[in-house]
Design a protein around this nucleic acid. Structure first.
Lengths: 344, 344
DNA sequence: AACCTCAAGTTAATCGATTAAACAGCCGGG
DNA sequence: CCCGGCTGTTTAATCGATTAACTTGAGGTT
């Protein structure tokens, strides 16, 4: 650890610590002669001086530390991208981030909040690892930024994925390929997912724009995992030919995995007989399926960046409504025109 | 929110700050009368006092902050588990962790190292997001702990997965089910993965123990992704029946995904016609395959805990050799007995 | 000569805690 | 009545930087 103090530099350069401080921080440096500045810098270099941020923070009341408090960093593989975005912005601006994981426990949350504010962090980000509406915890500073969650009541800066637009993009992709019978493999209602509601809205809107009458049978619900997707897809593929979908928009990539499995079992090929679009662009999965999955990416990295930018005051946020981050569609190979007998 | 200081508490309780400090920290508290202690505590509660850790750290020379410096938090979904393990131990012991991501850049690494030591962190962990051998960066403190990587030269405390034992466990699982023709779908040599070498050693050792002559044809190499696994598996399944493997141990779960695909294409069922074991226990994947994949779990959470425990001095480490963390086998449904004609 | 200005630093207060040392009462013993 | 030892609390130094206010000497003005 850096054992040399500013006074060591001062002694070696034959000046006071005030001079050292001014030179090294470039403050009032016009008042210090170039020769002295040179001497100070050389002395600092020679003794290997590294400023003690703790002392500096105490004096300046600025720690250059940002607290990032999250419900669970571990359970989703998406988390990393959010942290990476936040971290990159922090690094670009000379800040360090303190990460705390509350595992959804309210007690741990309050404790973390206290620890962070005791640590005098300059800013704070409250992150959820999947998009939801949260009751803002008591004690969260007014200027904290919410990441991947929307505040239930209080007005706070927040950023969430634009799920509605994402759902629209997914379905437009299918409509553009010529599909008219497009199923939505949705998560069951009991999971009460905002993403589910919004993606469904997007789905309906694009159908409406395309003049397609939505068929309630094509809105299938299941557990949002591969097994659920497989079952739901099977049921849909067992429908009589006239009602059977030629394309499926899946709530997430795992359900899409299940849809692939169901199609293969029925001897149908993707995208020859069935087109599939997923959601999440899950790392190490979407691109690895056969054929690679066309899907909608969750903009975790960008949301992380946005939140940190707002937290550091580099960007203004509207506290009245969460910022909607676009979800780009990632085109791979699971979408094609509908099979001939359904073509127009 | 004007921060309340210790002097505010002191004023309200009608004592000096020294008394407040002693009472609240329980130091020398036998020397302070119970009535005064009570008054101090009530005053602290009443004004909502929270100690300023910056000031405390400056005085005590202890920040209760741990620096965690990693090459990339974002690119692998495994990272979270490691962070979670480290974080949990930190939290259990009242520490906070500062996370920095260097993205493998040496400049950023040096910068991060300086920032962390300037921040006077009490301990430091250097983490890699996949198991490898690293040149310890200059400036990394002597007592820093390496996580998921082994030091190339210097002697440092380090923890890595016991890949050899993991490979043995995987192959034993297949041997126990009755298989004799067991393939290893390995990563290509050009990736130069320690994991690959060690898992292969484990594979060979179990074959030897079981008295099975290793067949070089059954050691297939490919890119360690689904596509690679599919190609390698296809080649193996095209072997004449007498040489064809009845089981495959795959370098990772993605290759196992590919093996599933190849089997299905050949009309073979898993595990009826082909048993498969993966490695990594990749979240949201291994359990979602059909059938769910038997695999070997990478003990990321446990390694994260271990590293933090050593960093905090709660546990001694042998600096001469990395600690090997066991990789538990996760039994699901992709292993069964070999098909009848191969049975004994 | 008296006064002012400016350059180039230095001095000392300060941030908010911790803690060794000092201090004020009180009691008991000689 | 004085001294030593307790007890309970305060005083003040300290951690390592930042920075407002001050100092000092040289040079310029009138």
């Amino acid at each position: 650890m850096a054992r040399v103090r500013m006074s060591d530099v001062a002694a070696r350069a034959g000046v006071s610590t005030a001079t050292v401080s001014m030179v090294l921080n470039g403050v009032n440096s016009t008042r210090i002669s170039p020769q002295t500045q040179q001497r100070v810098r050389e002395a600092a270099e020679a003794v290997g001086y590294e400023p003690n941020s703790v002392a500096r923070s105490l004096r300046t009341q600025q720690t250059r530390l940002v607290g990032l408090i999250s419900d669970t960093i571990a359970t989703t593989p998406f988390a990393g991208r959010m942290l990476a975005g936040a971290n990159d912005v922090a690094r670009e601006h000379g800040r360090l981030v303190i990460l705390t994981d509350t595992e959804g426990d309210v007690g741990a949350e309050r404790q973390a909040l206290q620890a962070l504010s005791g640590q005098q962090v300059d800013a704070m980000i409250y992150a959820c690892m999947w998009h939801r509406v949260v009751e803002v915890p008591e004690g969260l500073p007014e200027d904290a930024v919410l990441l991947d969650c929307a505040p239930a009541s209080a007005d706070r800066a927040a950023v969430v994925p634009d799920e509605r637009a994402g759902g629209m993009a997914a379905v437009r992709e299918l409509v553009a390929a010529g599909h008219r019978r497009i199923a939505f493999l949705d998560a069951e209602e009991r999971f009460d997912l905002v993403a589910s509601r919004l993606r469904h809205e997007g789905y309906l809107q694009v159908l409406a724009e395309a003049g397609i009458e939505p068929d309630p049978f094509l809105h299938a619900r299941a557990e949002p995992v591969a097994g659920g997707g497989r079952e739901a897809a099977r049921r849909l593929l067992d429908l009589p030919a006239s009602r059977r979908p030629t394309a499926m928009f899946c709530f997430n990539d795992r359900m899409a995995m299940g849809a692939y499995a169901a199609a293969h079992q029925r001897g149908l090929s993707v995208p020859g007989d069935l087109s599939v679009v997923g959601y999440d662009d899950q790392q190490l999965v979407a691109a690895e399926l056969d054929p690679p999955l066309t899907t909608v990416a969750l903009p975790h990295y960008e949301m992380g960046r946005w939140a940190m930018e707002v937290a550091l005051g580099l960007r203004r946020a509207d506290p009245a409504a969460p910022h909607l981050m676009p979800c780009p569609i990632v085109r791979r190979a699971s979408v094609g025109p509908p099979p001939a007998q359904f073509g127009d």
